[in-house]
Design a protein around this nucleic acid. Structure first.
Lengths: 249, 249
DNA sequence: CAGATCTCTTGATATAGATCATGGAAATAA
DNA sequence: TTATTTCCATGATCTATATCAAGAGATCTG
């Protein structure tokens, strides 16, 4: 890691470390969760050359909007994002939340333009993968192609589960399912499975789950009364994951 | 097309012609809509060698079920299918309907096992694409890899739109959107955009759209009273597509 | 840091669509 | 063919959750 820390002022220095701007894939803490999984060292080095590591974006920064020309896939490096699509009449649906190691923009490939809007929920950074370059180097890396397909397939699968949630679950089941999904993802990333921050607003959660904000508040308050969780603004603790699991339906 | 028609009894003969069992990709009427789009002739011939063309399946035939080992992707060749996923408590969600040229099983790639159930809605046939073979020949066919990614991406995109429908649309908007989606897909396949058969039951439609069967019946009846459509059992005519379009929200 | 603007919570009320109920029409089986 | 089952349409009623309302925090902003 040949970093230029010694010539940087402290502020930038900290920011760089915090968001690991210059960390190569093989040294990145997300390695296990990210695209390079399964690649040879030489392939990895080549992948590394096409990746553009972003500066950190502030909350509400727009990564791309519907209709923008598709050039790159993005992998969340730090922080979190939400994606939305909008109906003609202005109604919006939050189609997903994205955490470190997860891909954004996969639904843009077929139209060569982004089909959704992606926005940072907090201070965040991404790795940008220019799609043409990715295809170029992919020609000699079957493993990379499989990784890509696997990513797409995984998102497809979780979208189908979200359909089940939206179409068939009650408000309680929706919230329980949502909380456990977050828990699992944080755990996979080496964080606590029971204590974490909800980086998205209640209204984003409500929208994503096909509920009204008020319903989200009420259900969460009730879950708290029943000793299932403890909430403190954005901070949440899962006190009884077994019970929450049962509630998922 | 070296067909063995002359040694076959009449019944099989007719069945073969009806479902084009032996038609190579380059002679298939679905060519424009299907995987081979954009492939060189030589590549096409190679793709042809790995494709297994199924016999025709009867209504309700199960193509695969959740948990089955993933070996192949399927492309609908004739007829139609539905896919479903089930919650632990037995509730099911119809996650999609599939028509000729459309892929089934894309969400199985990442787990190497099918994540849903696929069932024929009528007499139907498929082209089976053994995934390993597909990956093998894909190594020398970047265009094939891109086609695959494109397919995945397209389904992802339409799933996000379904989320919008499930999460934000009224019963009327859901039905209107659904009818237009079918209309477009039939039109793309060279059939009438305004007159077609609903090969799925009302209850499949209801389930897919997150509604009760009764609601589907009622909304369709009202659409008929209002002169938007005409229904006769499974047969439907769209009489005023402009108005239906406006209703999609 | 004071004012403005969002965000969250909780209560009261309304409603879209679910559920229950019934009869007739199709499809399937025997 | 007849019997049986599934599917579809329509009416009556109910309910889960939306909407409306209002106040308390939290967070922005000049």
């Amino acid at each position: 890691m040949a970093e230029l820390v010694n010539v940087m002022p402290l502020f930038n220095d900290l920011a760089k470390i915090e968001h690991e701007h210059r960390v190569a894939c093989q040294d990145c803490s997300l390695f296990r969760l990210c695209l390079p999984l399964g690649l040879q060292n030489s392939d990895l080095a080549q992948l590394d050359t096409i990746i553009k590591r972003s500066q950190s974006y502030k909350r509400a920064h727009t990564l791309f909007s519907t209709g923008n020309e598709f050039k790159s896939l993005y992998v969340v490096r730090s922080g979190s994002f939400k994606t939305t699509i909008s109906a003609v009449n202005g109604r919006e649906q939050v189609t997903g939340f994205y955490f470190p190691g997860e891909f954004i923009g996969l639904d843009a490939i077929h139209q060569q333009s982004y089909q959704s809007n992606a926005k940072a929920l907090e201070t965040s950074s991404v790795c940008e993968l220019p799609f043409e370059n990715l295809q170029d180097i992919g020609k000699q890396m079957p493993q990379l192609q499989i990784q890509l397909l696997t990513r797409l397939s995984k998102e497809l699968s979780s979208d189908k589960n979200l359909m089940l949630l939206l179409g068939k679950k009650t408000a309680d089941e929706k919230i329980a399912t949502f909380l456990l999904s977050l828990s699992k993802r944080f755990h996979d990333r080496g964080f606590s499975a029971t204590e974490f921050q909800l980086t998205m607003s209640r209204s984003d959660i409500a929208n994503h789950l096909g509920l009204a904000v008020e319903t989200v508040s009420r259900v969460m308050s009730r879950f708290q009364e029943d000793g299932l969780i403890e909430i403190n603004g954005k901070a949440i603790s899962l006190l009884n994951t077994t019970a929450i699991n049962v509630m998922c339906g």
